[in-house]
Nucleic acid binder design. Structure first.
Length: 233
DNA sequence: CAGAAGATCATCT
DNA sequence: GATGATCTTCTGT
């Protein structure tokens, strides 16, 4: 992680804390716990080899990164989960190795980024619902042309566009070349949670988590329904 | 093979 | 608050 650490340290004036790649053990746990603990971590995408700081926002691609501020966990036979009726071609990754990316296409135009949770064999995944841009702002600006910076990554369909994530990214973030999730030691001060917003009939297992007060959370959490959320810490 | 639904968003009123 | 865009995946016949 040497080069990536240098990149993020240079781009984030945050801290001198070491930047570490999340391990498989992190993901191989209860989905809702992982959904909660992913808050504050950083998603990084690389769209071409990066050899220097200068190449970050080059005209042909580069690196983009965003801190996770909103997540949603899906697992098992919950009716809101793609795994509700067992394994299908689309949701097969949810049953596979923890830590891989599960990217699917919806409404004819949006890619959704998830990270697979739970030990292999039990279906689980965490949808990344919103990010706070950390690095690669110039590249995000090109990918989200004509969009206000505050709307680059404050929604699950928006952030995949800003980070250049496609369905072909259904890969292994732990060792793969394109998507990473790292921990820079930053921890959210206050976390909100709820299973009350947009619940599908009969859903009991789906929960949303977001960082209270962060201006990049999706519209869902910025309206009055946010009053129904529970304070976690 | 047809039909329906969908873990969303931009754009209207 | 309502609507349309746009197309993959799943289900049933």
């Amino acid at each position: 992680m040497g080069n990536l650490s240098a990149v993020l340290s240079a781009k984030s004036s945050r801290t001198s804390h070491q930047i570490e790649l999340l391990t498989r053990d992190f993901y191989a746990r209860d989905t809702l716990l992982v959904a909660r603990e992913l808050l504050g971590k950083i998603v990084v995408t690389v769209s071409r080899p990066v050899n220097s700081i200068e190449s970050l926002d080059g005209p042909n691609g580069g690196i983009t990164a965003g801190r996770i501020v909103e997540t949603e966990g899906y697992h098992g036979s919950d009716p809101a989960s793609h795994s509700a009726r067992g394994m299908t071609k689309r949701c097969a990754p949810m049953f596979s190795d923890p830590g891989i990316a599960y990217v699917y296409f919806i409404y004819g135009m949006y890619e959704m980024l998830n990270f697979v949770t739970e030990p292999k064999g039990y279906a689980g995944a965490v949808l990344i619902r919103a990010l706070e841009p950390v690095a690669g702002h110039a590249l995000m600006a090109r990918r989200r042309k004509g969009v206000s910076p505050k709307d680059w990554t404050n929604g699950p369909g928006r952030l995949t566009r800003a980070l250049g994530i496609k369905m072909s990214h259904n890969i292994e973030p732990l060792t793969g070349p394109r998507i990473f999730v790292v921990d820079d030691g930053c921890r959210p001060e206050k976390i909100y949670s709820s299973k009350r917003v947009g619940i599908k009939e009969g859903s009991e297992l789906r929960w949303r988590y977001f960082i209270h007060g962060n201006s990049y959370v999706s519209r869902v959490h910025q309206n009055k329904t946010a009053r129904k959320f529970n304070v976690e810490n």
